[in-house]
Design a protein around this nucleic acid. Structure first.
Lengths: 236, 236
DNA sequence: AAAGTTTCCTGCGAAAACGCAGCTCCCGAA
DNA sequence: TTCGGGAGCTGCGTTTTCGCAGGAAACTTT
């Protein structure tokens, strides 16, 4: 097993703790945090569990899912290194979603009690969270619009761009840094695996993407973006 | 015209300013705020405008919209008394959405500069915003799931429940406190006016709702909730 | 390398959603 | 009371999406 990562020397620099807490608080949080290694496919928490704190992704990839109709799961959002999972909650609330590791992942758990004190003694920490949630809200509103009005073709394009935004691509050959099954992609955009497959095949015919084994290479991100952008500006 | 409403005596008790700022800060904000009366249909701000602060709805109803394909507008969210509109933004950002009064509305505008000082000197004010945005984010994630996977029937049911949650109904006869056109309902759920009309007619046939002139009376909220809940728990 | 398992691909009929077109109803103005 | 305009309603043909089913490909296990 890997050694525990200590906050003061954590390489995940975008973590709010490192960015916005005083050195003393970084030490306090480091002592109190619960660091866990999750295997691919393992649950960080389950839908319905009592919310008792927040998870900070130190290293890895996580999907946040919610169960819909017919055991169909809906991917609510995806998280990469430095992202926060779980919402700040008032006492007694339970998660409306579950979180599952997409690959081996290290996450740090901070309890609500600890966070509460940290909020009050690190004003910019709180402010950072406020801005973070506000920004996430905006992104979500944006996605809502897409999912509500776009065709399957546009939805799949949007999903690829979303993966690109969150996880990025390899520097050299534009291969998406995350591997998702057709079903997972479908769960992300709200359709079924067949439609996703069909659309990806079409994109491949059009030389917009190429399949490299299980991975996807984005040849023409500009065209993908155009599909969604033309939409965004009301001109098709 | 109506007289200006002063913060210390404002009847909208759920406003964050009144709830979480010190008396001195309530005075400061009261002096600095810009209070405006918007006529029904008037814009608070336009999509693309530079973000320079937040709008607090003192009294009225507002829809936050974003333009999609073919001039189709998408209603991102609805706001009632005490709700906050506009996100906290980093410098230079512009609104991805516009806001339009659904009926005559009084809103107070606070500039980013003022808010910044208020945040730093009223810790619980900041914390309240953080929780607010977090809660809104959760709601939005939930709506995203619905909109992504539900049938038109379920979407319309969800929309009625959403209106019920935000604006409520008259105490005596369960008539929705807000009047929206078929087109606006369609913009809310991401479909077209015809489907909404059809579905509302079906609901009326099933004695789930009744039309009272332009208004809707919700006879069986339990059945509407069941449509969405059964969905939520994966059992149809 | 062969067998087994899982994921992916694709054709096709069924179902849902769309959107036009024509009609009715409601409300305000003359 | 009548007229005109706008919103709402609904029938129907078209398009899109769905989802099953059968086969191909890829990955695992022995």
């Amino acid at each position: 097993m890997n050694a525990r990562v200590e906050c003061p020397t954590c390489p995940t620099k975008q973590c709010f703790v490192q960015q916005h807490c005083t050195p003393e608080w970084i030490q306090i949080i480091n002592r109190s945090k619960e660091q866990t290694v999750y295997q691919k496919g393992q649950l960080l928490f389950r839908e319905g569990d009592r919310v008792s704190g927040l998870y900070f992704v130190q290293n890895g990839k996580v999907k946040v899912v919610s169960n819909g109709l017919n055991d169909k799961e809906h991917i609510v959002r995806l998280a990469n290194d430095g992202y926060v999972i779980g919402h700040c909650a008032v006492a007694g609330e339970s998660y409306p979603v579950g979180a599952i590791a997409l690959e081996d992942t290290v996450a740090c758990f901070l309890s609500n009690e600890l966070l509460k004190s940290a909020y009050l003694e690190n004003p910019t920490f709180t402010l950072a969270f406020m801005f973070y949630y506000s920004a996430e809200l905006r992104k979500m509103e944006s996605r809502l619009k897409y999912v509500a009005q776009m065709s399957i073709r546009e939805k799949v394009a949007e999903a690829l761009l979303y993966l690109h935004d969150i996880f990025g691509v390899s520097d050299t050959d534009q291969i998406l840094s995350v591997t998702m099954s057709r079903q997972e992609l479908a769960d992300l955009v709200g359709t079924n695996a067949e439609q996703v497959t069909r659309q990806l095949s079409l994109f491949q015919d059009e030389k917009i993407i190429t399949k490299q084994g299980k991975d996807l290479q984005l040849l023409r991100i500009d065209l993908l973006r155009k599909m969604v952008d033309s939409y965004r500006h009301g001109v098709k």
